[in-house]
Design a protein around this nucleic acid. Structure first.
Lengths: 140, 140
DNA sequence: TATTGTTATACTCTATAACTATA
DNA sequence: TATAGTTATAGAGTATAACAATA
């Protein structure tokens, strides 16, 4: 009955795929892809240039162009031309994008809370603490 | 200094994206995509039909056709025509696919072990147990 | 009629390479 | 020359709808 020594790697990937699948569905409910949600999430508290954004998302700068194009076309973000470097622009989330970000974030939170709800409160806290301990410093 | 009450949802998604990024890189080292790795992983101990496989991967059956086509073209899997239902086929991993699956799985395991290595042994076990507790029964 | 699977089509996402404009 | 960003192109992955073959 008791899982003796369940494998950490397998469990983490099972959980990752489950979370990703939930996120994909929630994003899809708002006509967003997972990467668009990540983009919006990054823009919550930053106004990065394209190269910086590419680094955050671990994408080539060329991949960013289309991504930002599609988000801009939907009025979720805007390109703000830099005043001091006429090659550069920063990407800023619009009011509409910010609203959508909040909506999606709330839905995601509710979903994950429900997933973890069966755990006793102390275990949920322990899990959160352990997860954050595994994350490398630059992700925190 | 101490993260007081770090958010569970945020931590889990940070970790999920980190794991996914590691998996993407490892898969790419072997010219595989993440979904191809998942496909191979499922075939380790099953020989499902296309519809069954679609259900495992949470994809439309039409998406499976191309996925399996590409894997078959590389000699990683093969379509075995069903003997009792001439519409149907099962998907079987080849010897070559099995070997590649092991290689990738080993690399992934090593990578995640390294990631979790800073944790004391007891904490690693606790983390694994908690993760498995969050997973719904059908994933175990 | 229902089911298994493929095909046609369209879109998103991604990379590489070549390019433009500015520094 | 170097840097910020876009464009051209190609391919994987995905879905919807229509289809073929078999049950």
């Amino acid at each position: 009955m008791a899982n003796h020594d369940p494998d950490l790697t397998d469990g983490l990937f099972q959980l990752s795929f489950l979370l990703l699948s939930r996120l994909t569905r929630i994003a899809g409910d708002h006509d967003l892809s997972v990467v668009q949600v990540r983009l919006l999430g990054i823009l919550r508290d930053r106004e990065p240039g394209m190269l910086e954004l590419a680094r955050y998302l671990d994408l080539e700068k060329s991949s960013l162009s289309g991504l930002v194009d599609r988000a801009e076309k939907r009025g979720l973000v805007e390109r703000i031309p830099s005043t001091d470097d006429r090659r550069a622009a920063t990407i800023r989330v619009t009011a509409r994008g910010r609203k959508l970000t909040r909506t999606v974030a709330d839905a995601v939170h509710a979903e994950i809370d429900a997933l973890a709800a069966p755990l006793p409160d102390a275990d949920r806290k322990r899990l959160a603490a352990l997860v954050w301990q595994v994350l490398p410093a630059e992700k925190k």
